[in-house]
Amino acid sequence: MSSSHQLSVAYFDGLTARAQPVLMWVERGMLQLSGPGLIRQVPLNKVQWSERTRHGARLAHFTDGGTIQAVNPADWDSWLDHHDLGAPLSTRAHQSWRWTMLATTVLLMVAVMGYWWGLPLAARFVAPLIPQAVSQQVGRATLRAMDEQWLKPSQLSQQEQARWRVSLSKAIAQGLDGASADTNATPPPIQLQFRQARIGPNAFALPDGNIVITDELIGLLHDREDVLIGVLGHEIGHITGRHGLRGLIQAGLLGVISSVAFGDFSTVLASAPVLMGQLAYSRDLEREADDAAIVFMHRNHVRPSVMSVFFQRIKDEGQHKGHAAPPAGDDTDKRIGIAFSSHPADAERLAHFTSADIDKGLEAPAHP
């Protein structure tokens, strides 16, 4: 035994507050303690070494209540390191700014991946488990809230509304023929609602099967029922895919996770109608709805490429009103359920609709 491997420490027997000076060293896997009137051996695996801190006391505890305390913290740390009894990797890591920065970066990456991929995947799994009765309640509550805030009664005559309902209902019946067999799910009954709104020529779907069509959209496409069928098919795609409910589930899960971290999630469910009115569909959900619209149009013997008429008219209307067109793909002010926001669709979506004609061997129509 080398004296350089001995360390002077203070020993407390756990029965009195009196410190007893002793020497400690390691020999044959045992912690040896020796001092006036004390000789003790303790297996190293029975010693609980305190976590090393910058300014805290250095301690070690025994199972019988005994304790040893460093007289000189620097010598204590050097002695532990010499015997490979220093702080574990976890302790050294959280005391290192480099390891802390790395851990923070990894945590942020996990959070971002969870937000972009984890939440949508969870929503896709949970949505089919939600009873249709819940979708009905959410849809009705959302429509009431929207009617109170930013929708107005339609200015279309009752006769015109009835005419469009009859015409479009035929397209709905034909477009949904066999849909439940394809998706193994029965979509809720589709109900058409006409409203005047500040969102311009648009339509949006609610989880209960209601599709709101604005007067401005009817005015824009009054002579192109085939194009209106395409917009309707897109919205029905949101309904059959339960996209509104999936978006609400994502927002709810995010709210719950945030509430677990920061407290109070009592208002998450109460704010469902507001969330429904403010959330935007993701690009993946929009692509799903576009695919559903293409199938819907094929069943109605409508060429998907006629959607170019809609895009062009939306663009012309924006320019006529003096609104600068946003960059392609911009989703500014795009609200949940709206088939297309009030600016030109990006080239990717238009190409997708046009290619559906090409795949079917049909000739794409010219722009109006």
Rank of each mutant, 00 (worst) to 15 (best):
T63E: 14
D284K: 12
A270N: 07
I358Y: 06
L85Y: 05
A324Q: 10
G178Q: 09
A280V: 08
R58N: 04
P304G: 01
L85K: 02
R287E: 10
A251Y: 00
Q312S: 13
S167I: 12
T354A: 11
H55Q: 13
I294H: 03
F340E: 04
I39A: 14
I213R: 01
S167N: 13
P189R: 04
I236C: 05
A197K: 05
H5P: 08
R92P: 02
L156F: 10
K334N: 15
L31H: 05
F62D: 01
F311L: 10
S308A: 14
G35V: 06
Q250W: 07
N184S: 11
T183Q: 12
F265W: 13
H55A: 13
V166C: 10
A10E: 12
L15V: 15
D64T: 11
I239C: 03
G361F: 07
I199E: 12
H343I: 07
L176T: 01
R98A: 10
L31V: 10
A324N: 09
R18L: 15
S180R: 13
Q196C: 10
A289W: 08
A292D: 13
L33P: 02
S96R: 04
S169Q: 15
A270W: 05
A141K: 04
V227Q: 02
L7S: 02
V227Y: 01
F62N: 03
L254E: 07
D316S: 12
R349D: 04
L143C: 00
D208Q: 06
Q48Y: 09
I130G: 00
M101T: 14
V22W: 02
T63S: 15
R299E: 08
G361C: 10
E27H: 15
L192H: 11
A111G: 08
F353V: 04
R52W: 08
V71L: 12
W97Q: 15
S167T: 15
R140G: 06
L245C: 03
G86C: 03
A351E: 10
A111E: 07
S342V: 06
G114Y: 02
A364R: 07
S305T: 03
V306F: 02
S50A: 15
S2E: 14
G263S: 06
K152N: 14
L107K: 06
H243R: 02
G252P: 00
P368W: 06
R283C: 09
N202L: 08
G86I: 01
T354I: 11
Q159P: 11
N45W: 14
H83C: 06
L129F: 02
I190T: 06
R287L: 11
R349F: 07
V309C: 09
L221D: 00
S169Y: 11
A325V: 14
W25K: 12
K170Q: 15
D316L: 12
R335T: 07
I68A: 02
S305R: 00
L253E: 00
